[in-house]
C-alpha cells in the first residue's frame, strides 16, 4: 500500500534537480559569456581584468548575502546603500576626532546594526511592511550621513597602513577584499544550507503562520534577518572606507537595486521561502561580468542599465516558467 520512496524515481529526479537549479544555469551562462569574451577581446583573460571584475563585486557581494537572507524570510531592505554610507561617515568621523580606526569601524558597524534594530522594531512590533520601513530609512540614514559629514566627503588618507590593508592589500597576490569576500560567502552559504537557525528563515518565509504554529518565534527570526542585513551593509561600508580612504556622503546611492537584482537573478523570490547565497553571488558576478564585458566591447555606458534590467527580466521569466510547469 504505502509506496514511500521510489528508488529509480529518486535518482532521475536528482539529476533533474541539479539541472533545474538556478546555480547550475548561472554557472553555465557565466562560463559561456567568459568563453565568448575571451575570443571577443584579447584583454578579457588578462589577470588585470579578472582581478578588476572580482574586486568590483566582492564588497557589494557582502551586502548581497544579507539581502538574500532577508529576501528568503520574505522581507526586503532598500536602505542598504544609505546604511553603508552612514557607517563610513560615522567610522570616518570618529577616526578623524582621534579614535583608533578599528574601534571607530566597530562603532560604525554598530551604528548600522542599530538602524537594523530600529527597522526591525517597526516591522515586527508596529507591524509595518519592510518595504515602507526601509524606504523611510533609505532617507533617514542618508540624511544622517549628510549631517555627520556636513555634506562633504571625509578624506581619510591618514588611516594607518594596517587598516588600509583590509581594502587595498593583497595576500599571495590576491586582494584581501576578495579573500574576505570568499570567506564570508562560503560561511554564509554553508550556514544557510546547514545551520538550524537559518532553516528557520526558510520556514518563516515559506509560511509565516505555519511557522508560528510550529513553535518558531517568527518575530525574532524576522528581526534577526533585518539586523543581519544592516550589519553586513555596515561591514561592507568599512571595507569600502579602507579601500578608498574616504567617506563620501553620496556613496552607494541606488546600490540597493543592484543588490536586489543580483539576489533575484540568483533565485531569491520576492515572496519569501526561496533563494541561496551561492545563487545570489553568481547573480552579482554575472551582473559585474556583463558590465565589464560591455565596457570591453565599447558599448556606450548609457546602455548598461537597460541591459542589466533585461537580464533580470529574462532570469525571472525563466524561473516563473519552470515553476509553473512544475506545479
Amino acid at each position: 500500500m504505502s509506496n514511500m520512496t521510489n528508488q529509480s524515481g529518486a535518482k532521475t529526479s536528482m539529476l533533474m534537480r541539479l539541472v533545474r537549479m538556478r546555480e547550475f544555469a548561472l554557472i553555465v551562462i557565466i562560463l559561456a559569456l567568459s568563453v565568448f569574451m575571451s575570443f571577443a577581446s584579447p584583454y578579457f583573460l588578462t589577470e588585470g581584468n579578472l582581478r578588476a571584475i572580482l574586486l568590483s563585486f566582492s564588497t557589494e557581494g557582502i551586502v548581497v548575502v544579507g539581502m538574500t537572507i532577508l529576501l528568503i524570510v520574505g522581507g526586503i531592505d532598500l536602505s542598504v546603500g544609505s546604511v553603508m554610507a552612514l557607517t563610513m561617515a560615522v567610522a570616518g568621523k570618529l577616526f578623524l576626532v582621534g579614535l583608533d580606526p578599528w574601534v571607530a569601524s566597530l562603532m560604525g558597524i554598530g551604528a548600522a546594526a542599530m538602524i537594523g534594530v530600529v527597522m526591525s522594531f517597526f516591522v515586527t512590533r508596529v507591524g509595518l511592511h519592510y518595504f515602507i520601513v526601509s524606504l523611510a530609512f533609505l532617507g533617514i540614514a542618508r540624511g544622517l550621513t549628510l549631517v555627520v559629514t556636513q555634506g562633504t566627503p571625509l578624506s581619510l588618507f591618514s588611516l594607518p597602513p594596517e587598516f588600509k590593508f583590509v581594502g587595498q592589500g593583497s595576500l599571495y597576490g590576491i586582494p584581501f577584499v576578495v579573500i574576505l569576500f570568499f570567506v564570508i560567502v562560503g560561511v554564509a552559504d554553508f550556514l544557510l544550507r546547514r545551520a538550524t537557525i537559518f532553516r528557520r528563515v526558510y520556514y518563516v518565509g515559506s509560511n509565516e503562520k505555519a511557522a508560528e504554529y510550529s513553535g518558531i518565534r517568527v518575530k525574532r527570526v524576522k528581526a534577526g534577518a533585518i539586523i543581519l542585513c544592516s550589519t553586513l551593509a555596515g561591514l561592507a561600508g568599512v571595507i569600502f572606507m579602507s579601500r578608498f580612504g574616504a567617506a563620501p556622503p553620496q556613496f552607494g546611492v541606488g546600490m540597493e537595486l543592484n543588490v536586489i537584482a543580483a539576489a533575484v537573478i540568483g533565485g531569491a523570490g520576492l515572496y519569501g521561502g526561496q533563494g541561496s547565497v551561492l545563487g545570489a553571488i553568481l547573480g552579482i558576478a554575472l551582473l559585474s561580468l556583463v558590465s565589464s564585458s560591455l565596457q570591453l566591447l565599447d558599448v556606450p555606458v548609457f546602455w548598461q542599465d537597460g541591459i542589466k534590467g533585461g537580464i533580470l527580466l529574462v532570469a525571472v521569466t525563466i524561473d516563473h516558467i519552470v515553476h509553473t510547469r512544475k506545479a
Binding site: 515559506s206 509560511n207 505555519a210
Partner: peptide
C-alpha cells in the same frame, strides 16, 4: 494556511 509549508520538502515539514 497554518499546518504545512506547501513549497518545502516533506522531510523539512516534518522536522519543523
Amino acid at each position: 494556511g497554518e499546518g504545512v509549508f506547501l513549497n518545502m520538502p516533506i522531510a523539512q515539514n516534518v522536522s519543523a
